[in-house]
């Protein structure tokens, strides 16, 4: 298995507006909007680049160290 990035994107699903702006910018195609309700990041694909966090209009995505 490929080595994982040190950091990854974490979504506060309670305040996500499900607009899909993050999905649009993700270079890895790691983000989907789950049933029109909130964004979900595929942790295995996320490289922690932070483009989604920069784009998120509700600012509910943080790039954090992986546990």
């Amino acid at each position: 298995m490929a080595m994982q990035s040190k950091r990854h994107a974490v979504v506060d699903t309670s305040l996500c507006v499900a607009c899909g702006a993050c999905m649009e910018v993700c270079p890895r195609g790691a983000i989907t909007v789950w049933k029109g309700s909130y964004s979900v990041v595929d942790d295995a694909l996320c490289i922690g680049c932070g483009l989604c966090a920069r784009e998120c209009p509700a600012s509910v995505i943080r790039v954090e160290d992986r546990p």
Partner: peptide, 12 residues
């Protein structure tokens, strides 16, 4: 943010 409207868009 560019898509701030999407946060309070009534249709959204």
């Amino acid at each position: 943010k560019p898509r701030s409207w999407c946060v309070y868009c009534p249709m959204g």
